[in-house]
Simulated assay, not measured.
Amino acid sequence: MAKSIVALVGNPRAQSRTHTVALQAAQAVADRIGDAAPVEIVDLSALAPHLLSATPSASVELSLDLVRGADVLVVASPTYKGTYTGLLKSFLDRVPTGALASTVALPLLVMGDARHALAVEVHLRPLLVELGAHVPTPGIALIESQLPDAETLLAEWAERVTPQMTGILNERLPG
């Protein structure tokens, strides 16, 4: 069975640079793990008006199911106030602790300044681990000045993370 790869984008703006980078990262991983289904994307900018509703919309529930069912989840956010966005946190707060136990998660932050580079490991990684995800590799922090070279940088990153990720996927998700 093909492995599902989902890019979760926590930018409140539609079609953002974070969206582009998340898709590039997910595709770079898909190209290297083999037997991957087409990359799917959950762009939270479209779900924002529904996330804090007492009764979530069908689109929120479908997106939650997609994220919970992912074999590989690329979680991407711009860096706001030194960490990931509140929009991403609001969405992930709807994912029960342990619900990502069968998921390999890859954190990615886009930031304006290298001073925030540790945020991917200090803030985003622990959130994904709390949800049960296996986060086998360092996340990636891309500075805005690196975005013109993002495709190359993400390909190099995917080359480094794929061996660790593939071992986990083969162990947890045979076939």
Rank of each mutant, 00 (worst) to 15 (best):
S59P: 05
R32Q: 12
L62N: 09
A7R: 04
G10W: 01
V6P: 03
S57M: 08
T20C: 13
R13A: 09
P56C: 14
D35Y: 02
Y80Q: 10
V74R: 07
V39N: 13
L47G: 00
N11K: 07
S77K: 05
L73W: 07
Q15W: 05
V9F: 01
R13H: 08
I5M: 12
G69Y: 06
L44N: 02
V60P: 01
V42W: 01
R68T: 08
P38I: 02
A37Y: 03
R68L: 12
G34A: 07
A58H: 11
P12F: 01
I33A: 13
I41F: 05
R68C: 15
A25R: 02
I5K: 07
S16P: 14
S45C: 07
S63P: 04
R17N: 15
S16Y: 03
L52T: 03
P38R: 07
A58D: 15
V29C: 10
V9H: 06
A22N: 03
V67M: 12
L66G: 06
Y80A: 10
R32L: 11
L44M: 02
R13P: 03
L8P: 06
S53T: 11
P78L: 10
L66P: 12
G69D: 10
S53E: 14
A22M: 07
A48Y: 00
A54Q: 11
V72H: 12
P56D: 11
V75A: 05
I41L: 15
L66R: 15
A48P: 01
E40H: 08
L66Y: 04
V21A: 14
L52S: 02
A54E: 14
G69A: 13
P12E: 03
